[in-house]
């Protein structure tokens, strides 16, 4: 009966950890900030997949 625990229990869900981090940083406003950030990042990721823009300039100006 103990066997399944060793398989499932240590599994960390990234979403949960991010929520905990957001809570620590933003307190009672964490959910609102996280919702805004998630929408923004989703939009960015979707564009990256769809458009695949190239860096300009190719080499960073400031190393």
């Amino acid at each position: 009966a103990a066997g399944w625990r060793t398989i499932t229990a240590p599994q960390e869900r990234p979403g949960e950890r991010r929520s905990a981090e957001m809570k620590r940083l933003y307190g009672e406003n964490a959910a609102r900030i996280q919702a805004m950030e998630t929408a923004m990042q989703l939009n960015f990721d979707r564009n990256q997949d769809r458009i695949q823009p190239k860096y300009w300039p190719v080499i960073p100006l400031k190393l």
């Binding site: 990042q41 960015f44 990256q48 190239k54 300009w56």
Partner: peptide, 29 residues
């Protein structure tokens, strides 16, 4: 659009000194 870490901006119609790049990624650094 920007990523949430403020590292990269997606832009379009980028007017560079040597012409226009239709889609580009700028480094915030």
């Amino acid at each position: 659009a920007s990523d949430i870490d403020v590292l990269n901006f997606q832009v379009s119609e980028l007017q560079t000194p040597i012409g226009v790049q239709k889609e580009a990624l700028l480094r915030c650094h």
